[in-house]
Design a protein around this nucleic acid. Structure first.
Lengths: 110, 110
DNA sequence: TCAATATGAGTGATTTAATATCCATAAGAC
DNA sequence: GTCTTATGGATATTAAATCACTCATATTGA
């Protein structure tokens, strides 16, 4: 936080989209900001920041609010989430536990 | 934050999945935790919390890290993000700007 | 096996998100 | 048009995330 953080276009757009999806979900369900914030255990102000796509909110709170109005990040239901988590666990055990290189720059893209 | 917050299963699993996707993406690209945290402008500790799927991190930072290792949140590229944002804007103008009800409980599910 | 370094983890300081409360304005219901 | 209330915004306070730094352990490559 110290310094003003800057965010990529993708991040900003994703945040904006998520906030709008939440707001639309709330309105479609006929929930006031107070209704939803109450259910999520947060204040109206925090909800407004989330709906406005601000970058500083806690990710756990945002995901919780999203879930409350039916917005899914990966478009996966509970079962599928579980499955993907398990698959990722397996994949991670196969990958090296620590990355070993240095000296020469990473052979990144360019 | 004040009080210990509790999160739904969906939130926990989504956070866990996102963290694992980020870690896998980092390892596959041969980036050390220091490499990635440096590029993201955060400390290794913060990155570890993100990869561990902890709920308290700032959503903007998490999304930024995800973007750096090629993890896309809604599985949308830049152009699609833009399009969806525009569509959502239109949708929001059609929805009521404020929800009007009270007195009787919301006709929610039950 | 051994040396180099990546990772995991702890501490204290700093910054800021979230809260609680209040007020002005906007917007819906009659 | 009027009334009611939902929303947007401001404030001071508090709790926690992040940082910077350090050390122990795990892991990799030679």
């Amino acid at each position: 936080m110290r310094v003003t953080r800057s965010y990529s276009r993708a991040t900003k757009q994703t945040l904006a989209l998520l906030g709008k999806l939440i707001k639309a979900g709330r309105l479609e369900r006929g929930l006031t900001a107070e209704d939803l914030s109450e259910r999520a255990g947060i204040t109206r102000k925090t909800l407004r920041k989330i709906e406005n796509g601000e970058a500083g909110s806690e990710i756990g709170i945002v995901f919780e609010v999203a879930a409350l109005v039916g917005v899914r990040l990966f478009d996966l239901d509970d079962r599928s989430l579980q499955m993907h988590n398990t698959r990722l666990d397996e994949k991670l055990t196969l990958l090296p536990k620590s990355v070993r290189h240095r000296k020469q720059e990473v052979d990144d893209d360019f």
